[in-house]
Write a protein that binds this DNA or RNA. Structure first.
Length: 292
DNA sequence: CGTTTTTGACCGGCGC
DNA sequence: GCGCCGGTCAAAAACG
């Protein structure tokens, strides 16, 4: 089953990033995720939902800024406030056998009751806004849907997916913007501890695949400035309609645009790192690379 | 037949 | 304390 995660991405479902210059800040407190933007070509702007992950990924490397720059608020998800909870930061270095949720639950716990007393540690999250007709964008990994809930203030349900790799705890939420139904908001949580398959389009695979594949369904080719909707909070999506032809979603990814809201501190200087540099926090990247 | 999706129920956190 | 809500579980159904 492990290898199923390597199923080739389906071009038909992969979306395109939406990126561009001049982004405005948008905060989504509805779930602790934060979207923020950068300000330059291809710069990633992103969301960050470092919901109190104590020893956040890459913390050791000291490159993962706690996103609390400027007006960007820190994830308020108090529910996961784990004071000193030693979280084996689900980094890919120590494949977290469900580490995040530290399943070392008391034996008496039947089924539905998750380990009581143990607070869940949420992992860093990255959100992407994708202009797509399909909800579930292909990103190179295989996901299993484990739930769907109606979202308050939104006519569209939110779907919950989990990486099918048994050792991978990455999850993702997919929902449509209530403002613009054509926009799909995908939020990734955690990091894959395995690789994904490369993209035929060429590019992004290699040592950084696991990361890019995780946060970038498909590398952007077209960027569109948009503001992240805050769903239950503000739902104020503003999409600069791309001048791209809206092709059949089955036919090509070009019909989709994705706005990546990645985590990491405010975009520094993408420079030579290209898109990846925009999306992937330096710290995480180095980690990934080292890890591979 | 194995895997994925669907869906109602359950659980825990938060606000009032 | 209670109700709301987001997130997850798990049995059953659907699918390939």
């Amino acid at each position: 089953m492990e290898d199923k995660d390597r199923a080739p991405p389906d071009p038909a479902t992969a979306g395109e990033f939406v990126g561009n210059s001049s982004w405005s800040l948008s905060v989504d407190d509805s779930d602790g995720s934060h979207f923020f933007s950068g300000d330059r070509d291809g710069t990633m702007f992103g969301d960050i939902g470092w919901d109190l992950v104590p020893d956040r990924i890459g913390a050791s490397e000291g490159s993962l800024p706690p996103v609390q720059t400027g007006s960007i608020e820190q994830a308020p998800t108090s529910s996961y406030r784990s004071n000193n909870q030693s979280v084996s930061s689900s980094s890919s270095e120590d494949p977290p056998e469900k580490s995040t949720v530290s399943e070392e639950k008391p034996p008496e716990i039947p089924s539905k009751s998750k380990k009581k007393g143990q607070k869940r540690i949420r992992q860093p999250r990255f959100a992407f806004m994708t202009k797509s007709e399909v909800d579930h964008l292909e990103d190179g990994y295989r996901w299993r849907k484990y739930g769907q809930k109606a979202v308050k203030n939104s006519p569209f349900p939110r779907s919950y997916y989990r990486c099918t790799n048994s050792k991978c705890t990455v999850k993702k939420r997919v929902e449509r913007s209530c403002e613009d139904p054509t926009i799909v908001v995908t939020t990734y949580e955690g990091q894959h501890c395995h690789h994904t398959v490369g993209f035929p389009r060429g590019g992004i695979i290699s040592h950084e695949a696991s990361f890019t594949g995780q946060f970038a369904p498909t590398m952007p080719q077209f960027y569109y400035p948009i503001q992240i909707p805050t769903e239950s909070n503000t739902c104020t999506t503003t999409v600069s309609q791309p001048s791209q032809p809206h092709n059949d979603h089955k036919a090509g990814r070009l019909s989709r645009a994705t706005t990546a809201v990645s985590d990491a501190s405010p975009p520094q200087h993408p420079t030579d790192e290209g898109l990846l540099g925009d999306i992937v926090p330096r710290g995480m990247r180095s980690r990934e690379e080292r890890n591979i």
